[in-house]
Write a protein that binds this DNA or RNA. Structure first.
Lengths: 211, 211
DNA sequence: TTTATCTTTGACCGTTTGGTTAAATTATAT
DNA sequence: ATATAATTTAACCAAACGGTCAAAGATAAA
C-alpha cells in the first residue's frame, strides 16, 4: 500500500511535492513555511510559486493525494462479501497496519478537519462520496441479517464503523499522552502496547456484538 | 462542573483570560492572534503584554486551567469503590456529558498534543501524575479480581481506559467527517447519533468484557 | 548560430504579527 | 491638593511570512 513517500522520478515538481508532503503532514497548513519546503526540496522559494501558484494550491495537491492514498482501500473492505466477524477482523487488521506505519496521516486529517471542516468533507465526498454510502448500506444489510439469525445483537453500521475507527485511530493520535503518562515516555513499551491491541481490538468488538 | 466560561469578577485580567480561552480553544496557539484576543476582551493589545508578558505565557495560563478543569474529576472516577460495570457506566456517562458540552476541549488537547507533546505531558504529570498511576492500579486490581471470580474476561486497566476514552472522544473530535459524510451535514441527525451512543457505548464495553 | 521557450535564481515588496515604549489617564495614599 | 503608583492607550518597531519580478541559465527548434 503506497501511503508513504512516493519514490517517483525526481523531477523538480516531484521533489517539491515530496518535500511539501513531509512538512505539511508534520505541521499542518498554518504551521508550515514555504521556505522550509523549498529548503527541503533543495530549491529556491520562488520555484514553489512557479510550479504551484501559492501555498493553498500546493497544500491542496498534497492534501488530496494523502486522502486518496488510504480512503478507497478502507472503504472497499466494509462492503466486501465476508462474514461479519471476518469483516471486523480484516478491517481492524488492515487499518491498524496502515496507521501504525503512517501515524502522521490520522493526525494530519484531524488537524485539517478542525481547521477547515468543509474542505475535508468536500474532498472526501468528491473522492468516494457515493461509494461510502453504498458500502455502508451493504454492511448494514449484513448486520441486520446476522442479528435476525441470532448470531449478533442488533447494531447499525454507522455505530459499528465509528466504534472500529475510534478504537483504531484514537490510541495513535493520542500517543503523546499515552506514551507520556501511562508508559513514562518509554517508546518501546508504548509500541508493545499498540501491538497487543492488534489482537485485542477485533476480539473485543466481536465479543461486544455477541448475544 | 465548571468547564466553560468562568463568570468571575470582570477585572481586566479575567476579561483577558476569558477572551484568550475562547480564542485559543478554537484556534490553538499558532492559529490565534493577540489582536483578536485583545478585541474580544475589549482592550488594547498592549494591555495583554502588560498582564501577561507574551503570547506563550498567556497561553500557558489558559492551557493549564483547561487541563485542570476536567482531568482530576475524570481521574477520581476510575479509582472509586464501585463495581467494574458500574465504574464503566459512570465513567462513560460523566465523560460523555463533559465532552458533549465542551467539544472544543478534546479538539484543543489533541491539537496541542501534536504541536508540543512534551508540554502537555509535563503539565498533566504535574497536575495529577502520581494520582493517575494510583487510580489506575486500583482499577487494575478490581479487574483482576473480577476476572478471577469469572465475572469478566481478563483485561488490563490501560486497555480498558484507552478503549473507553477512544469510544467517547473520537466521535466528537471527528465530528466534521461523521456529520459531513455519514449524515450529509445534518447537524441534528449527528446530535441524535451522539445521544444514542450514550446508552450504547457503556453497554458495548461491558458486553465486550463478558465471558 | 540564432531564436524562442522553459526553468531557476536572488533581490525585493507589502502585510501581518508579536512585542515595545513613552506618554496619558486613573486610582491610591498622604 | 499633591505626589506616587497602577493601569491604559496610540504609535511604533523588527522579524517573519507569502508572494512578485526582472534577469540569468538551460534547452530545444529553426
Amino acid at each position: 500500500m503506497k501511503t508513504n513517500g512516493q519514490t517517483s522520478v525526481p523531477t523538480t515538481e516531484n521533489l517539491i511535492l515530496e518535500a511539501a508532503r513531509q512538512v505539511f503532514l508534520d505541521k499542518g497548513l498554518e504551521g508550515s513555511r514555504m521556505q522550509e519546503i523549498a529548503d527541503r526540496a533543495g530549491i529556491n522559494k520562488a520555484l514553489l510559486h512557479y510550479y504551484f501558484r501559492n501555498k493553498q494550491k500546493l497544500f491542496e495537491h498534497v492534501f488530496e493525494s494523502v486522502i486518496a492514498s488510504f480512503f478507497p482501500q478502507v472503504l472497499h473492505l466494509i462492503g466486501s462479501n465476508k462474514s461479519v466477524p471476518e469483516k471486523i477482523r480484516q478491517f481492524v487488521s488492515i487499518y491498524l497496519d496502515v496507521i501504525y506505519e503512517n501515524p502522521f496521516i490520522p493526525r494530519f486529517i484531524i488537524h485539517e478537519m478542525n481547521r477547515d471542516p468543509a474542505h475535508l468533507t468536500t474532498t472526501m465526498e468528491r473522492i468516494a462520496g457515493k461509494d461510502i454510502r453504498k458500502q455502508l448500506k451493504k454492511l448494514d444489510e449484513d448486520l441486520a441479517e446476522a442479528s435476525q439469525r441470532g448470531i449478533i445483537r442488533p447494531v447499525n453500521a454507522e455505530h459499528l464503523v465509528i466504534n472500529m475507527l475510534s478504537l483504531c485511530i484514537f490510541p495513535v493520535v493520542a500517543e503523546p499522552i499515552i506514551a507520556g503518562i501511562l508508559f513514562h515516555k518509554n517508546e518501546a513499551e508504548y509500541k508493545q502496547f499498540l501491538l497487543t491491541r492488534k489482537e485485542l481490538v477485533a476480539e473485543f468488538i466481536i465479543n461486544g456484538l455477541k448475544c
